[in-house]
């Protein structure tokens, strides 16, 4: 039995260590997020601020094709506000009865209109680099939201001595290799928050990363609250199974 427990401990430690060891890049500082932990939930006011940051800054270069405008109502926006967000952008539709394609304002049922019609156009506008779609970014990198936060706050005008930054790139201490194609997107007061929150660089980064986690895991609130109920129920049921097992086996011992 002891050997088995030691073995499981070893396996568990290996399993825990593997993700960290697999990350070749720099150490990523862990942040505190409102939606972390068993009881974590999104802070919708924060998500609204994060949406504002994405809308005002990031969406100029980054697409987010997996999210639809109607999803924004989860953040607390009214139907009219959602309709207005959608209608800011034009979408190609058709063909009409004349056989032509035409432009129309986006509807809530449409997915976020990307800033560029295709990858090639995106590259042309961004020095040959393709700004990745951000829908799943918080799940698509080792370190998840902590990593994205580290990137957003990891820019430094003065790289370490001896580090070469090619033309058109920028030094970022959190990015593998240190050189990233994205210019620093945020700084203090880069946006003016609708709810009046002080827009420091760290606050902006926190808010937009929380928003990005929501776009990657919109089901989180429901998943965790259902999880608590399910595990609680199972603990009760398993306890009953155990009691019944003891009862049935009692005459054998």
């Amino acid at each position: 039995m002891r050997k088995f427990l030691l073995s499981t401990l070893a396996a568990g430690l290996l399993a825990a260590a593997t993700p960290a060891l697999a990350n070749e890049g720099p150490e990523i500082e862990k942040q505190a997020w409102s939606w972390q932990g068993v009881f974590g939930q999104y802070d919708k006011a924060q998500l609204r601020r994060g949406w504002q940051v994405f809308h005002d800054i990031c969406s100029n270069c980054h697409s987010m094709k997996l999210v639809a405008y109607r999803n924004l109502s989860y953040l607390g926006f009214s139907d009219d506000e959602v309709k207005d967000f959608a209608a800011e952008k034009q979408v190609t539709d058709g063909p009409n009865d004349q056989g032509d394609m035409f432009q129309r304002p986006a509807r809530p049922s449409d997915h976020f209109v990307p800033p560029f019609p295709n990858d090639q156009a995106a590259r042309v506008a961004n020095n040959g680099a393709l700004p990745p779609d951000l829908s799943l970014m918080a799940k698509a990198r080792n370190g998840g939201p902590d990593y994205v936060y580290a990137i957003l706050t990891g820019f430094d005008d003065t790289p370490p001595a001896g580090h070469v930054v090619p033309d058109g790139m920028y030094y970022n201490k959190a990015f593998g290799g240190g050189n990233i194609g994205m210019p620093p997107p945020i700084s203090d007061d880069a946006v003016t928050y609708a709810d009046g929150t002080k827009a420091t660089k760290e606050q902006i980064a926190k808010d937009v990363v929380s928003f990005l986690n929501w776009t990657a895991e919109p089901e989180l609130d429901q998943r965790k609250s259902l999880g608590i109920k399910v595990i609680g129920f199972l603990i009760v049921l398993t306890a009953m199974f155990y009691a019944l097992k003891r009862k049935i086996w009692a005459d054998l011992h």
């Binding site: 398993t238 199974f241 155990y242 049935i248």
Partner: peptide
Amino acid sequence: YYTIKDLFGVG
């Protein structure tokens, strides 16, 4: 005997 023990394991 083992149906209930298996159910406990399932839980």
